[in-house]
Design a protein around this nucleic acid. Structure first.
Length: 855
RNA sequence: GCCCGGGUGGCGGAACGGCAGACGCAGCGGACUCAAAAUCCGCCGCUCGCAAGAGCGUGUGGGUUCAAAUCCCACCCCGGGCACCA
C-alpha cells in the first residue's frame, strides 16, 4: 500500500502542469467565459498568510469554473511601482528594479509551490516599460478628454515619504503607508478629475448586486453626496466704500432654516478674508486669529469634538430671505475645502452653530420646532420676532414645522422638505440662490515626487507652456543610471530633464513627477485580456469579450482606494469608446484578515508571523490550502491555528486510503472490519452510500457557488466519513458486484477525487492518474460530478416529535408517508405524555418534525 | 453622532423561522503494539442524577409565533467606515 507523500508528488505534478500548458488560456475557445481575478500583489518579499488566503480562494473558484466547463481567465501579475522598493534601494545602494524583480521571482516561486493555476504567459508587471507605456497613453487620453488638470491648491504632504498624497491615502490625518502626520501645503500638482464622475460612481453602486454591502456603503460615504443650494449673502459695504456689488455664497442643505440665521461664518482658510477685513477696526486681530487657526494639524482636527473658536470680523452680510443684516465671524469649525468655505449659521437648527452661539452669546432664533414643543403654540401665532438663547439644551436638527418664517410658517422643515424646496425656489426666482449638489469626494491627486513610478508624460516649455509628450514618443522611460542613495532624483537627473518642446522644438524641461501607483492598478485587469499588445493598451474586442471580471477577490483595505479608482477608469475608457461595459467587477469577495490564534495582526515586530513556506515544507501545499479554506468563511477574519494544517494532512491521508480501498484489488482492503460487517445488509448499505454521494455533491456544489469553502470541505469530510463506514462493513465478495462494489465504488472514488480537485489539486491529480488509472489525463479538465436530487432523497426519514415545541421523541416514517399516518405514529410515541391532556393543534413539517400543542 | 458588520461549547466554526452545536481541533475512554507513533472504534454544551430522566442553554430585556440563534422593539459589548460636510 503506497502512502500519500505531498513532498514527493507536488513538485513533479507542478512540473507536469507547466510542461503541458494546462492553464494556458485560449481566447478562441467556444466555451462560455469566466474571468476569475485576485488583486495583484505588491512584491514586498516572501508571501504571507494573507496571500495564501486571497489566492487560494481565487484558485478554488478558477479550478471549479474550469471543471464546470468555462473558459477561465485566471492571470497573475505584480503591482511593482512604489516606495518600498525605492527605500530598499537607498538602504542597499542598489536599484529599485533589482529589489522588485528579485521579490517577484521569490513570490512567483511560492505561488507555483502553492499550486495556483495561473496562465503565466499573461503576467503583467507594472514597472515594465511595455506596461507603463500604456499607463502614459491612458494619461494622455484622459488629458484629451479634459480629465487632467494641473493646479495649485492646498495638498497633503507626507514629509517622511517626501511626496504628496491623494485624499484617499490620508487616514485620520496620517500617511497610509508610513503612518506619519500629513501636513497641508500649497503646491501645484496633477489631478485626475474623478469628481466629474462622482454622480455616476455613486448611482452605479446600485448595479453592483454582487458586491458586499459594506463596501458599497463605504464608497457611498466617501463620495458623500449632499443636495442643497448655494445662497448668496450680499456684503454690507463699509461706510467709506462705494462698492455694493459683493456677495458671499454659502452652500446649505437647510435653506428651510434661513429665517433662523443669526450670524454668518467664514473659515480661517477663506480666500477673500484679507479683502473682507481690510480697513476694519479689528483687522490685525482677525488675521492673526485666522493664521493661528490654520496651524492646527490635520491629526488634531480629526479628533472629533473640539472646542470652537471664533472672532467677529466687523463686517455684516444681508440675509437674502428677509433682508436682515447679520454679523460675519471667522471660526475654526468651518471646513475649508467643502462647499464654499463659508456657512450661514442657524443656531436653532444646527448643533455646531448652537454651541458657537452659546459661547459667544449670539442670538438663537427658534424657527423650527416639533409640534410637541411647548413653544410651538405660542410661536405659531406670534407676529413679532422672538429671540431666545437659554431654554434649549441643544439644537433641533430633526424634521419639524417652521415657525417665525414669514410666508413659510407652518410648512414642514428639514433636509429635502417642502419648506426647503419652497425657499430655494423663492431664492432662485429672486436670483439669490441656486439649487446645487455637493460631494465630499475630491479630485484624485496623482502626481508623486518620487522616482519609482510611472513618469507623467508632459513637457514644460518656456514658450508653449505645459504640453503632452506625443504618443509616438512613449514611453517616457525611467532613467536606469540613477543613484538614489546619493540623493539623486528625477528632478536632478540632467539627462532625464533636458528635452525639446514637441510643439516649438525649443529647449524644454521634462515633468519630473511620477504617477500614483494606484494609476497602475486601475486598469491592469484589462491588460490581462491582451497582455502582449504593442499597438495599444489593449484590443477593445478582447477586453469586451473577457470583461467584466466575474469574480474579483481581494482585501477590504481597498474598499475605497483601488476599487473606486478602477471604477472611475472603466467609466472614462468607456466614454472614450474603448469599452462597452460600465463596471469592471461583477462579483466582489473581500477576504477577512488572517490573524494569529489570539486575534492579533501578524507582524514581524510582534514575532507572531506564520510562514506559508514553512507550512508547505512541513505538510505540503494541499494541506495548507485546505486548512486556509477550512478555517472559516472567506469574508470573515480568520484566527490562524497551526494545528489545523496537520489535521488536513490527516484527512487527505484518510481519503487516500479510502480511494485505494474503493478501487484497489480484492483482498487489500485496509478498512474492512470483519466483526463489524457481520449481519450487515449489503444492498441497504449500497443504497445509503449512493444517497450520501449525491447529497454531498449537491451540497458541495452549492457551497462553492456561494464561496462557502469551509462548509464545502466539511461536506466532503462527511462523504469521506460515510465512505469509510461503508468500506468497514462492505463484504469482500460484494466488492465487484454491480450495486455494492464495482460501478458504485468507482463512482464514489472519482467523485471524492473530483470534489477535492479545486481544494487539493496535486493530491487529486495524483489519485486521478494513479489510483483511478487515468494516466494521460488531468482531473482539472474533467467535468464536475453530476448529482441527481432524486437519488439524494432518502426513502425513510426521521422526524422529531415535539410537545408544545419541545422535542420529546423521534419516529421513523416513509419519506412519502401521509400526514394522518405520521400523526398517528407521533401520537402513539408520546402516548403516555398525552394522558389526561387535550391536543388542541397539530403541526406537521414534512421531513422535519411534528409538533403537538396540548393543554 | 451617522452608517455597515458581528456576539453560538474549552477553541475554529455549522444551522431555507422547524431536532442548536454539522465538520474539525483539543480532551477522555477503548482496540492494535513489548512500547510509542500512526491508524481504527466510541464519548464529548452546562447542572442535577447510579440510571432512566429532568432542568437550563445562541450578549441582555421584552415581543410576534404551534415553533426564534434566525423575525420585531429597546439596550449592552466588540470590529470597521464616515464625521465640525452646514
Amino acid at each position: 500500500m503506497n502512502e500519500y507523500n505531498p513532498h514527493e508528488i507536488e513538485p513533479h505534478i507542478q512540473l507536469a502542469w507547466e510542461e503541458s500548458g494546462l492553464y494556458a488560456v485560449d481566447d478562441a475557445s467556444d466555451k462560455p467565459k469566466k474571468y476569475v481575478l485576485e488583486m495583484f500583489p505588491y512584491p514586498s518579499g516572501d508571501i504571507h498568510m494573507g496571500h495564501v488566503s486571497n489566492y487560494t480562494y481565487g484558485d478554488v473558484a478558477a479550478r471549479y469554473a474550469r471543471m464546470r466547463g468555462f473558459n477561465v481567465l485566471h492571470p497573475m501579475g505584480w503591482d511593482a511601482f512604489g516606495l518600498p522598493a525605492e527605500n530598499a534601494a537607498i538602504k542597499h545602494h542598489s536599484h529599485p528594479a533589482r529589489w522588485t524583480y528579485d521579490n517577484i521571482d521569490t513570490q512567483r516561486a511560492s505561488f507555483k509551490r502553492m499550486g495556483f493555476s495561473y496562465d503565466w504567459d499573461r503576467t503583467v508587471v507594472a514597472c515594465d516599460p511595455e506596461y507603463y507605456r500604456w499607463g502614459q497613453w491612458i494619461f494622455l487620453e484622459f488629458w484629451k478628454r479634459g480629465l487632467v488638470e494641473r493646479r495649485n491648491s492646498p495638498v497633503n504632504w507626507c514629509d517622511s515619504c517626501g511626496t504628496v498624497l491623494a485624499n484617499e491615502q490620508v487616514i485620520d490625518g496620517r500617511c497610509w503607508r508610513c503612518d506619519s502626520e500629513v501636513q497641508k501645503r500649497d503646491l501645484t500638482q496633477w489631478y485626475y478629475k474623478i469628481t466629474d464622475y462622482a454622480e455616476e460612481l455613486l448611482d452605479d453602486l446600485d448595479q453592483l448586486t454582487g458586491w458586499p454591502e459594506r463596501v458599497k456603503q463605504q464608497q457611498a460615504n466617501w463620495i458623500g453626496k449632499s443636495e442643497g443650494a448655494n445662497v448668496d449673502f450680499a456684503l454690507v459695504p463699509l461706510e467709506d466704500s462705494a462698492d455694493t456689488e459683493e456677495a458671499i455664497t454659502v452652500f446649505t442643505t437647510r435653506a428651510d432654516t434661513l429665517f433662523g440665521c443669526s450670524f454668518f461664518v467664514v473659515g480661517p482658510e477663506y480666500d477673500g478674508l484679507e479683502a473682507l477685513v481690510a480697513g476694519t477696526p479689528a483687522e490685525q486681530e482677525v488675521l492673526a486669529f485666522a493664521e493661528e487657526a490654520r496651524k492646527v494639524s490635520a491629526v488634531e482636527r480629526a479628533q472629533g469634538d473640539r472646542e470652537k473658536h471664533g472672532i467677529f470680523t466687523g463686517r455684516f452680510v444681508v440675509n437674502p430671505i428677509n433682508g436682515e443684516q447679520v454679523p460675519v465671524w471667522v471660526a475654526d469649525y468651518v471646513v475649508a475645502d467643502y462647499g464654499t468655505g463659508a456657512v450661514m449659521a442657524v443656531p436653532c437648527g444646527d448643533q455646531r452653530d448652537f454651541e458657537f452661539a452659546r459661547k459667544y452669546d449670539l442670538p438663537i432664533i427658534p424657527i423650527i420646532l416639533s409640534t410637541d414643543d411647548p413653544l410651538y403654540a405660542s410661536l405659531a401665532s406670534e407676529q413679532g420676532r422672538v429671540v431666545t438663547s437659554v431654554d434649549w439644551p441643544e439644537a433641533y436638527a430633526a424634521e419639524g414645522v417652521l415657525v417665525q418664517s414669514g410666508p413659510y410658517t407652518g410648512m414642514v422643515g428639514g433636509k429635502h422638505s417642502a419648506g426647503e424646496a419652497a425657499i430655494v425656489e423663492a431664492l432662485e426666482a429672486a436670483g439669490k440662490g441656486k439649487r446645487t449638489t455637493e460631494y465630499r469626494l475630491r479630485d484624485w491627486l496623482i502626481s508623486r515626487q518620487r522616482y519609482w513610478g510611472n513618469p507623467i508624460p508632459a513637457i514644460h516649455c518656456p514658450h508653449c507652456g505645459v504640453v503632452p509628450v506625443p504618443e509616438e514618443d512613449l514611453p517616457v522611460r525611467l532613467p536606469e543610471d540613477i543613484d538614489l542613495a546619493a540623493g539623486e532624483t528625477l528632478a536632478t537627473h540632467e539627462g532625464f530633464v533636458r528635452c525639446t518642446c514637441p510643439v516649438c522644438g525649443g529647449e524644454a524641461k521634462r515633468e519630473t513627477d511620477t504617477m500614483d501607483t494606484f494609476t497602475c492598478s486601475s486598469w491592469y485587469y484589462m491588460r490581462y485580456c491582451d497582455p502582449h499588445n504593442v499597438h495599444a493598451p489593449f484590443n477593445s474586442a478582447k477586453v469586451n469579450a473577457w470583461m467584466p471580471v466575474d469574480q474579483y477577490i481581494g482585501g477590504i483595505e481597498h474598499a475605497i482606494l483601488h476599487l473606486l479608482y478602477s471604477r472611475f477608469f472603466t467609466k472614462v475608457l468607456r466614454d472614450a469608446g474603448m469599452l462597452d461595459f460600465d463596471e469592471p467587477f461583477t462579483n466582489l469577495l473581500c477576504q477577512g484578515m488572517v490573524l494569529d490564534a489570539n486575534g492579533e495582526v501578524m507582524s514581524k515586530s510582534k514575532g507572531n508571523v506564520v510562514s506559508p513556506e514553512d507550512m508547505i515544507a512541513r505538510y505540503g501545499a494541499d494541506a495548507v490550502r485546505a486548512a486556509m479554506l477550512f478555517m472559516g468563511p472567506p469574508d470573515k477574519e480568520k484566527l490562524w491555528n497551526d494545528d489545523v494544517v496537520p489535521s488536513m494532512l490527516k484527512f487527505l491521508n484518510r481519503v487516500w486510503r479510502i480511494v485505494f480501498d474503493l478501487v484497489g484489488d480484492a483482498g487489500e482492503d485496509t478498512l474492512f472490519d470483519a466483526e463489524a460487517a457481520k449481519g450487515a445488509d449489503p444492498h441497504k448499505l449500497a443504497m445509503q452510500m449512493k444517497r450520501e454521494r449525491h447529497r454531498v455533491v449537491g451540497k458541495v456544489t452549492e457551497d462553492i457557488e456561494r464561496n462557502n469553502f469551509n462548509t464545502a470541505l466539511a461536506a466532503i469530510m462527511e462523504l469521506a466519513n460515510a465512505t469509510g463506514a461503508f468500506l468497514r462493513v462492505r463484504p469482500a465478495e460484494h466488492r465487484v458486484s454491480c450495486e455494492t462494489g464495482g460501478p458504485l465504488c468507482r463512482d464514489v472514488a472519482e467523485t471524492l477525487v473530483k470534489l477535492l480537485a479545486p481544494i487539493a489539486p496535486h493530491f487529486a491529480e495524483e489519485l486521478w492518474q494513479t489510483a483511478l488509472g487515468h494516466a494521460d489525463s488531468s482531473v482539472h479538465v474533467q467535468p464536475w460530478p453530476e448529482f441527481d436530487p432524486a437519488l439524494a432523497a432518502a426513502d425513510e426519514v426521521e422526524l422529531a416529535v415535539q410537545l408544545n415545541g419541545k422535542v420529546k421523541a423521534h419516529i421513523t416514517v416513509a419519506a412519502d408517508a401521509a400526514e394522518e399516518d405520521i400523526l398517528a405514529a407521533a401520537r402513539q410515541t408520546v402516548a403516555s405524555a398525552l394522558e389526561g391532556k387535550t391536543v388542541i393543534k397539530e403541526i406537521v413539517v414534512p421531513k422535519r418534525l411534528v409538533n403537538l400543542v396540548v393543554k
